[in-house]
Simulated scan of single mutants.
Amino acid sequence: MTEREVLLEIHHLKAYFPVKRKSMKEEKKVVKAVDDISIEIFRGETLGIVGESGSGKSTLGRTILKLVEPTDGEILYKGQPIQHLKGRHLQKYRNQMQMIFQDPFASLNPRMRIGSIIEEPMALQLTLSKEERKKRVSELLQKVGLPEDAMYKFPHEFSGGQRQRIGIARALAINPEFIIADEPVSALDVSIQSQVLNLMLDLQDEFHLTYLFISHDLSVVKHISDRVAVLYLGRVVELGAKKELYANPLHPYTQALLSAIPVVNFDEPKQVVPIQGELPSPMNPPIGCVFHTRCPFVMEKCRLERPTLQHLNAQQQVACFLYD
């Protein structure tokens, strides 16, 4: 078996945000949005990131792009550290990465025509003539399934699914290698979701793209991902190949998430994993295992020690004392 090439490495990444104090006497507090995450992303794959709202999914993506400065840890892109990059070196790094946002209408300038929106990053980053840029805009619109005359219209003249296609075309404008998709289909109808997901898969094959796909919808992640990382309170509690993780979830939190997926065949037996309470505050995460306050299998050790992510087999890693 050929060893896969690692495109992006993340080592012990943390992103903490200070909370404004009401008085000088009040203790300083921080929100631990990303709390010691270490993962690798291989060239050409789609790594799905799942978890509840507040688990740190979007912050992780924005920290990789340096839209959020990491508090600690290391990010390596093609083996080179990027956390200290500035100026043109940072710009060169960002040229290799683009982002597809959750709300396509909010991420498109309502005062600009579609052609100008897609052309703008080319004008800033690529040495192309006006005619070459216009030709590329036309080609990208065709790639995402929109007519050429779409370049002369404004964002409000399109449906949500069409606007997301425009967002994808803009992300491809400067030939990136790595794309972070932050809930790219959550605002779309179910029938449109499948069209956009299939489009992303086709573009991945054609342009040899690597995706970090962020979503709270496990059905969507199952459709598009090669591997899946499950986040809880800013930490990875399980990481594995899609097929193994969905067939045999190891962490109680992953089991609970999968048991909550609606079933089509009601005659098929389904095990429901009980999960109680709300997600704890990232300002005051539990001591020990971050999931122990809601876990149906909690042990005394879970309340005292924090489990680390360990390989249980060749395809799955889990942070849980049940497998010690």
Rank of each mutant, 00 (worst) to 15 (best):
Y16W: 07
N198S: 14
A256D: 08
L250N: 10
I287T: 12
L245R: 11
N265M: 08
I10V: 13
L141K: 10
L126H: 08
R113T: 10
D205V: 12
T127Q: 14
F266P: 15
L90D: 06
N313D: 01
V34C: 06
T46K: 09
D226C: 06
K135H: 14
T59E: 02
E5V: 06
S219V: 12
S259R: 13
K143T: 15
V137K: 13
M112S: 06
R303S: 04
Q255D: 07
M151H: 12
L188P: 07
V230G: 06
L124M: 07
Q255H: 11
M24F: 07
V190E: 13
L141C: 08
C320F: 00
K92R: 09
E268Y: 05
I168A: 11
L239E: 00
P269F: 06
V185P: 15
N265R: 15
Q98D: 03
V196W: 11
L85S: 11
G145L: 02
E139T: 15
G167Y: 05
D217Y: 03
P252M: 02
G288V: 06
V228W: 04
A123W: 00
V50Y: 07
E132L: 05
T308E: 00
F207Y: 10
V272K: 14
V30C: 05
Q98H: 10
E268C: 05
I117Y: 02
K66E: 10
K32F: 09
E40C: 09
V221T: 06
Q317A: 00
V272H: 06
Q271L: 11
K242E: 10
E183Q: 13
Q195R: 15
P282E: 02
D324V: 01
F213A: 09
L212H: 05
G115F: 01
D149V: 07
D189H: 14
V31R: 15
L231T: 08
K25D: 04
A15S: 14
H223W: 07
P110T: 13
G48F: 05
H208A: 12
V298C: 01
L13E: 00
A260E: 11
I168W: 08
Y93S: 04
K143G: 14
S194R: 15
I49C: 10
K143C: 14
Q193E: 04
V19F: 03
Q255C: 06
N248Q: 13
I275L: 10
S259Y: 06
D103M: 05
Y16T: 11
